[in-house]
Write a protein that binds this DNA or RNA. Structure first.
Lengths: 356, 356
DNA sequence: GTTAGCACTCAGAGAGTTCGAGTGCTAATG
DNA sequence: CATTAGCACTCGAACTCTCTGAGTGCTAAC
C-alpha cells in the first residue's frame, strides 16, 4: 500500500484530530487546519480512498472518518512525530528514582503509578527475575533470651530478616557454628535446591540450636520463592473513567475487571532492540483487549533482572506521547538499577530521544 | 417518634426490599411478602404515615417508597436483624490471618482487600501508632570489605535492615564498639529525640568507623519516621461500578476520585466500646460522602497500636451483613496481633456475634 | 488535477404519545 | 373502628415520529 504524501498528510491530520477530540473528523475540519492547502472536496476524495484502503472507517454514512486499527498502525510506523518530554516530566522522573533508590520493587511500583498519572491511563509494571536467586550470607543475632533475628543477604542484594521467638536455650557456641554451617551449606542454593537431606544434615549437626534450623530453612525457602516470583503491579485502572470511550459503565467495568495481574502477564515481551512496542486493538491476543491498545517498554537491569512497563488505553491514544514517556522511564530504570551501582549521584538525566 | 409494631415491620420490609433490589418499593410488593398479613391498602396508609414522619421518601408521586437517611438510621438502631457469618467467611478470614501473620502492615492491607471482595464495596484500613516507636537493638554485620548490613529491632518488634556499601576500612574493634554505642545511646529514642548533638557525639567516638555513623543515624531516623506514620490502605474502589447507584460514570468518578487516603483519615474513630459505627449519608461530615454510607470498626492491639477498618458504599447497603463482617475482622485482627503472641496456632475461630 | 455545487443520508435531539405501576381517597365490610 | 376493595388520578419510562444539520459522494466547471 503506497500512499502519496498528500494522503499521508491527511491521514496524519485525521489521527491527530481524532486523538485530540474523540469525534469523527470531517473533510471541512481538516481543510480548516493550518498548513492544509486543499479544499474540502479534494480532501473528501482522498478520505474516500483511504477508507477504501481500510485505513479509515466511517461510523455511519453521514459521519466523519475515524482511524481504523490499520490506520493507527501505519500512523505509528510511519507518520508519528516524535514527542519531546517536557522539563517537568524529566525532573519528576529523576526525583522518583532517587527517592526510592534502595528498594527495587517499590521503585517499580512507583514508576507504574507515575506513568499512570502522567498519561492518565492505567499502567502496569512487571519485574522479571530470570536468574536463580540464592542466599549469599546468613547472620543470626540473639537480642534476648528466646529472641533471635535472622538476617539473609540475597544474591540480588536485597536483605531480608525475620524475628524468631522460640523457647530455645542454645549454647552461644552452637549458634556460632550453626551460622557457619548455614553459610557453607545453604548459600548459593536456589529454593528448589534446598532438599530435605540438607535440612536433615543441618539439624543433625546443630546441637542445642537444632530447633532453630527448621524455622530458618523454612524462612529461607519461603523468602527465595517469594523473591523469585515475577511481580506485577497494576495501577490507575480508574483513569479509564475519564476517557470518553468508557463513559459506559458496563464497558469500563469489563475492561477494568480484566486488567489484573493475570491479564498483564499474558502480554508479549518487547524485543531487546526495539525500545517500545505498541499493540493496536485487534493486534492484541487477549479478547478483553481487542478494542484497546497497549504501549509497552522493556527495561534491562543486567544480571537476569528485566521487566516491562506499559500503558493500556483506548485505541484512540496519543501514541507519540505515551511511547516517549515510557521509553524514557524504561531507560531511566535501567540506568538506575543496572546491577548495583552504589547509590551514586546521577549525572545525566537528559531526554534520551532520538530525532527523526 | 414512636412507631407501632406494624409500622416497624413495614419499614423493615421497605428497607430490606430496597436494599436487595435498588428499586422503589410499592405497597403491593410489600403485601405480597410472606408473613405480611395486611392488604396493600392498609400498607399504603402506613407508608403515607412513615413518609410523613420523614422515614421514607418518594422519588416522585407515582413511584414506590425509598428509605430516607432517617429511615436507615432507625433501621440500623432498632430494626436490623443480626447477620450470621457463613462458614466460608470465617474460614477464609482465618486463612488470611495465618498466611501473613508476621507482617502487620501487609496483613492490614490484605484484610482490607478481603473485606472489599466480600462486600463488593470499596474498603479501607488504617493502622494507627499512638505510642512513640523506638529502636530496641542495633546490629551491624560486615559481609565483605566495604559491605555492611545494618539491622534494627524496633519497639513494635518489626525488624528493618539496610545494606550499606561504603569504602570504609573500619577496624573490627571499632565496629564492635560502635554497635555497643548505638545500643546504649540510640535505643529507646523516638525519631525526634535523636538530636544533632547525639550524632556528633557518636561520630567523635567512632574512630575508623565514623563514616558509617551518619548513614546509620539517617537510616534510623527515616525508619522511625516511616514506621510512626499512620498507614492508610484503600482498595476496591472500582467495586462501586457494580452498584446501580453508580451507573453514571460522572458520579462514580467523583466518588472514587475522592476516596483516597486523605479522605479516609478525616473519618471519625469509632468509640472503644461499640464495635461498629455506621454513618448514613448526610451524617458524614465530608461533602463527598453526603450520599454515601460508611461502616467502620475499630480494632485494638494494645500497646499503642490500634486502627480502623471500614467500608464505603451507597446508602442502600446491607448494613447488617457488612457490619457483621467488619466486626468479625476487627476482632480477628485484635486477637491475632495483640502485642506479640508468638505465632501460635489459633484455637477459636467462632463467630463472635451476639444474638438479639 | 482541483474545486464549487448540490442532492442525499442518517444519527441525534426534541416533541408527543402511550403505558402501567403506584398513589390517595372514599365507601363498604367484619 | 380498624381494615379492605375499588377507582380516579399522577407521572416517569419507553416508544414513536419528525426535524435538523453535519457530512458524504457525485458531477460539472475551472
Amino acid at each position: 500500500m503506497n500512499l502519496t504524501d498528500r494522503q499521508k498528510k491527511i491521514l496524519r491530520a485525521v489521527v491527530d484530530s481524532y486523538v485530540a477530540t474523540a469525534e469523527p473528523v470531517g473533510s471541512k475540519a481538516i481543510a480548516a487546519q493550518p498548513d492544509m492547502p486543499y479544499s474540502s472536496a479534494t480532501i473528501r476524495n482522498e478520505l474516500a480512498y483511504l477508507t477504501e484502503q481500510g485505513l479509515l472507517e466511517q461510523p455511519h454514512t453521514s459521519a466523519g472518518r475515524v482511524p481504523s486499527p490499520a490506520g493507527y498502525r501505519l500512523y505509528i510506523d510511519e507518520l508519528m512525530q516524535d514527542y519531546r518530554l517536557s522539563r517537568d516530566e524529566t525532573q519528576s522522573l529523576s526525583q522518583v528514582m532517587n527517592d526510592k533508590l534502595e528498594e527495587f520493587d517499590k521503585a517499580i511500583a512507583q514508576v507504574g503509578q507515575m506513568i499512570s498519572s502522567l498519561t492518565n491511563l492505567p499502567a502496569y509494571a512487571v519485574a522479571t527475575k530470570s536468574q536463580a536467586i540464592t542466599v549469599q550470607h546468613y547472620e543470626l543475632i540473639q537480642t534476648a533470651p528466646y529472641s533471635f533475628i535472622l538476617v539473609l543477604l540475597l544474591s540480588t542484594e536485597a536483605v531480608h530478616n525475620k524475628l524468631i521467638k522460640l523457647p530455645v536455650n542454645a549454647d552461644p557456641q552452637d549458634l556460632k557454628s550453626l551460622v557457619a554451617m548455614l553459610n557453607t551449606s545453604l548459600t548459593d542454593l536456589s529454593a528448589r535446591e534446598i532438599t530435605p537431606q540438607i535440612l536433615a544434615k543441618l539439624q543433625r549437626n546443630a546441637g542445642t540450636a537444632s530447633d532453630l534450623v527448621s524455622v530458618i530453612v523454612e524462612f529461607t525457602v519461603k523468602t527465595l520463592e517469594d523473591e523469585q516470583k515475577n511481580e506485577v503491579f497494576v495501577t490507575g485502572q480508574t483513569k479509564l473513567l475519564g476517557q470518553p470511550e468508557y463513559q459506559d459503565v458496563g464497558k469500563a467495568k469489563a475492561l477494568i475487571g480484566s486488567l489484573d495481574e493475570n491479564m498483564i502477564s499474558t502480554l508479549p515481551v518487547p524485543d531487546k532492540d526495539s525500545s517500545v512496542k505498541i499493540l493496536v486493538g485487534p493486534e492484541n491476543v487477549s479478547q478483553a483487549l481487542k478494542e484497546t491498545s497497549v504501549v509497552m517498554a522493556r527495561y534491562d537491569l543486567g544480571d537476569g533482572m528485566q521487566g516491562m512497563i506499559g500503558v493500556v488505553g483506548p485505541t484512540r491514544m496519543d501514541y507519540a506521547q505515551v511511547a516517549a514517556r515510557l521509553s524514557y522511564f524504561a531507560e531511566g530504570l535501567g540506568k538506575m538499577f543496572s546491577k548495583a551501582l552504589p547509590p551514586s549521584s546521577q549525572e545525566e538525566n537528559e531526554t534520551p530521544l532520538q530525532e527523526d
